[in-house]
Write a protein that binds this DNA or RNA. Sequence first.
DNA 1: CGGGATCCTACTCGATACTG
DNA 2: CAGTATCGAGTAGGATCCCG
Lengths: 136, 136
Amino acid sequence: MSDTSELAESLRVSFETDVEPCLGSGDGRAMRDLLDRVGDKWSLLIIGTLRDGALRFSELQRRVTGISQRMLTLKLRSMQRDGLVTRTAHAEVPPRVEYALTPMGTTLLEPAIALALWAVDNQQAIAEARASFDAA
Amino acid sequence: MSDTSELAESLRVSFETDVEPCLGSGDGRAMRDLLDRVGDKWSLLIIGTLRDGALRFSELQRRVTGISQRMLTLKLRSMQRDGLVTRTAHAEVPPRVEYALTPMGTTLLEPAIALALWAVDNQQAIAEARASFDAA
DNA sequence: CGGGATCCTACTCGATACTG
DNA sequence: CAGTATCGAGTAGGATCCCG
């Protein structure tokens, strides 16, 4: 596990000019916008599911366990609007619609994976912290 | 900008065993837990604000623009429970309470910064994608 | 100063039913 | 198959007042 200083050092030049106004103090517009978009229950899971290539609507719904038809529609529409996914409708019977990540959507995959790894690495520590906190 | 394959390659060993069940298909328990914790409107902004060291409650509220007293209290309590921040109350008059990141909270800073940088880098592209989508 | 207790609103999300 | 439409419950989050 590398500590934060390594990354922080490599990012020092851009850190104060770019991150300061968005992650830390101030209004954090960019960060808040991002969280409004993909900080919800499903968006990152959908993006993760699309990482291997295009999928049709029903296949997507089968893989993202528990998502309702409605939410899948809504989230896909929103992500399409933001330029994160493409929607390709094939004029056939029965209809076939495929969704895929755009180049920009793919670049989001990188920090998303980093976050997912953190989640996996620390989920047990968090559970323990929780338990000991609740004991008091 | 590096594409995703570089990181994906360096993480290949753990990717399928660790990320697969959480970011992509399946129930995505770890990822969902993480989003439930820090995927809200304020948590990551608070963590970002604490990156330079301990701050008192009122100072925190002044820096995280727009947060209500209530939400700051709630989020800090939740993050303390999860072992992400520490709360130190000094027995003085007037009372002084300081919050700081735990080591685990600091490690979360790393992927959080990566995400913040992505947000900054892509906010304009997203705004443009939105505009052109709405035009149709 | 650093909260706790309440009240209230707006929006999210799920379930269900219907359609091209 | 891939949606759209509608309803209803739950909840995040803001405003306000009070307390040690």
